[in-house]
Design a protein around this nucleic acid. Structure first.
Length: 132
RNA sequence: AAUGCAGGUUUUCUUAUCGCCCCGAUAAUAUCGGGGAGGAAAGUCCGGGCAACAUAGAGCACCGUACUUCCUAACAGGAAGGUCCCGGUAUAUAUCGGGAACAGAUAGUGCCACAGAAAAUAUACCGUCCCACCACAGGCGGGAUAAGGGUGAAAAGGUGGGGUAAGAGCCCACCGCUUCAAUGGUGACAUUGGAGGCAUGGUAAACCUUACGGGUUGAAAGACCAAAUAGGUUCUGUCUUCUGCUUUUGCGGAAUCGGGUUGCUCGCUCGAUCAAUUUGAGUCAGAAUGGGUAGGUCGAUCGAUCCUGUUAGUGAUAACAGGGCUAGAUAAAUGAUAAGACCCCGAUUUAUCGGGGACAGAACCCGGCUUAUAAACCUGCAUUUUUA
RNA sequence: GGCCGACUAGCUCAACUGAAUAGAGCACUUGACUACGGAUCAGGAGGUUAUAGGUUUGAAUCCUAUGUCGGUCA
């Protein structure tokens, strides 16, 4: 382990992605839910191993969007919005980091601006409801 | 020039800011440099490579393919050709364009509703004709015949003539069919000539026959690394219910199991506490060993490869020469925002404004097929109009 | 990523190896019965058999392609 990563930047590190199968199952079974239309946010605080990364997962249901092109586009927009505004969360230090799961619940494709707005709202909501 | 049909080619571009994935260098979550979706990446309909397992040979079964020759690693793909069908042009034929699951119904079995005399070994209902009788409209009996007969998808070679009591390939001509021979062609087949009097309805995307091909399973294949824990195997050692006394034999107590004591419980009582004898079984401890889950690495991107040219071939394609390296992720990168250029549509003040730029996103890799596609361009054919 | 299967009336299902009006129950609707309703009785409507081609005289059925839905394999 070298120098610690710059958490304030807009870089989106590989460790900030939620990949572990059991963590995902924990997030969806034990985590809390809050709706920010067109998104739904699952969140859960966890015990980090070394660096307190917030971990992100994005999901777009296949039921509403048949074409993988459309699903990929929405996922990229959500991830981009989170990347630009995640520094808000790292600014407020203290407390356990979050596992985040964004699920797209609308049946229509929304523009980047409306998605960005709701992502900011959701991050503010998380900071206000943080424990420890 | 427009429209339609068929086929082919291309799949918008530039800049800035912030980012993502891979590779290389410095050197370590930093900086620099390079690369980053498609013609269908799709459907998974075929064929192969690759991998594991299986495997003496032959036959049967099952699945698939089906005009011929060639191409190919292979194919249900492609090229060239043949036959048949459809459309156009001149018109007994030729030519142009398009299409065809295009082997066999004379190997066998099955099916062909309704209608119709009859639906497949032809039949004899209405008919036609001859003879005899009743007795003269006609009826009945015996015989000949298959020309004609509502039907039906399909009717037993067709047309014309001769012939006959009436008729019939009964006979003849032409056409068709079957078969034989010759010639041309690698072949499908074509042309010419002879013979047969016609024997052969349809259906094989019904069973089937013939010929050819197919081992099974798919990257979730498969190979390797490997923490903690549990268990398997092997080796070594220890013990054979626990405990007290005793040198040992042995004796006492407790526990467990089994039998008896009236069915049950307690109690009492009896027996056993590994089997056996050069060993085996089990408990515990230690060591070794192989299998293997979370996870990771490989498989995995240099290949039936791409580009250009020459040669051979009608062509698919092949050979040779030169040059290039061109995504490689794994809850899965290839993006977001802003501005401009190009193209299309609408409004119209003719220069602005507004809207739009299809179908669609790699997952081991190739060769095809099929399906989805905005716009532009090219080629062939047909129709219409204009000009000469 | 691979491999299977099913689409028939508003719903649940039939129609077997092709045969001409695609049938049954529930639901809907009309009438009768009843003071009214239910139940019952008598009738009626409702289908491009998922879509598009093909084979056949004839297709829900056979073949091909497409679409939708479902199952299964670590």
């Amino acid at each position: 382990m070298g120098t610690s990563p710059d958490l304030q930047s807009c870089r989106f590190y590989r460790q900030e992605r939620l990949k572990h199968k059991k963590s995902i199952q924990r997030l969806f079974s034990e985590g809390k839910t809050k709706k920010f239309f067109p998104l739904a946010l699952y969140f859960l605080q966890y015990e980090p191993e070394e660096i307190p990364f917030h971990k992100l997962l994005v999901s777009v249901p296949k039921k509403h969007f048949k074409k993988s092109v459309v699903r990929n586009k929405i996922k990229r927009r959500i991830r981009e919005a989170y990347r630009k505004h995640k520094h808000i969360m790292y600014n407020k230090t203290g407390g356990l980091p979050f596992l985040l799961g964004y699920v797209y619940i609308s049946k229509n494709v929304h523009s980047y601006k409306s998605i960005e707005e709701q992502v900011i709202n959701s991050i503010q909501y998380l900071l206000n409801n943080k424990t420890n």
